[in-house]
């Protein structure tokens, strides 16, 4: 028996290109976008701090979304003010 698949046909996102990675983090600003989940800020900032120590990055700058289910309205500001960014997904 032939049946229609219930999945959407076509229109799925095409594969995009990631921003070119940096050869090294030395002298760069590491951005942190906290998604407001419990301890997300603690883990993200600890990773950023350790990375900065290890690589000679210039510093760490943080932003916080008002809630995990809210869009990151500060995304342009992050792009202007940092060179790389760490963020969190879900819990």
């Amino acid at each position: 028996m032939n049946v229609w698949s219930p999945f959407p046909g076509g229109g799925r996102a095409q594969v995009g290109r990631l921003a070119p990675r940096k050869p090294s983090l030395a002298g760069l600003t590491i951005g942190v976008l906290d998604n407001s989940k419990p301890n997300a800020s603690v883990l993200l900032h600890r990773v950023a701090e350790l990375l900065a120590q290890k690589t000679g990055a210039a510093g760490v700058r943080g932003w916080r979304k008002p809630g995990a289910s809210r869009p990151a309205e500060m995304i342009d500001d992050i792009a202007k003010s940092a060179h790389v960014v760490l963020t969190g997904s879900a819990d």
Binding site: G9, G10, G11, L51
Partner: peptide, 23 residues
Amino acid sequence: VLDGLTTDPAPPVSTASAGPTLV
């Protein structure tokens, strides 16, 4: 994390399908 910021990964193959599918 450092690797993810400093090494370009190989781009994956697009898997977008065509219209409705009969199976």
